[in-house]
Write a protein that binds this DNA or RNA. Sequence first.
DNA 1: TTGGCGATTTTC
DNA 2: AAAATCGCCAAA
Length: 157
Amino acid sequence: MRSLGGVERVGRIVEVEAYLGPHDLASHSSRGLTERTKVMFGPPGHAYVYFVYGMHNCMNVVTQKEGHASAVLLRAVEPVKNVEGGSHGPGRLCRAMCIDRRLNGHDLVSDDFFIAESPDGPVPIVRRPRIGVEYAGRWAKRLLRFYIKENPYVSKK
DNA sequence: TTGGCGATTTTC
DNA sequence: AAAATCGCCAAA
């Protein structure tokens, strides 16, 4: 859930990718602790939002305790409330949910920005290799992309 | 200080 | 298939 200007935008997360830590050559944290990646090295439960290709924002959730530098990239959400213009794909998700670099480092246990447990029970999950990380050698082959089976809002490919 | 390139998307 | 577009970061 993202609240901005009195508008609450709600999406159901249907696709994610895991980035394990500095040993994971596909992860930004493999470059070590830099100005850009410092949030990843920080405490869990915070948003790591970065800007790529000169035009897109991507959002991650820091997942492991301080120093581990692992995170989960949110790749697609199913629109639930006030989500318009397409929300499949990391960049489009951020655009639709009004998430940008100003939220980098933001606590995800906040009134205006948080993730809650789904009211759904267990759902079937598909595992695939991550997208757009061909440079990472063998790490590109790891099955670290997860999405809800047959959900129409999962990104293509 | 500089140049190559990117966890993407859109258009030709 | 290739452009759009700019901040990050390694190298000089």
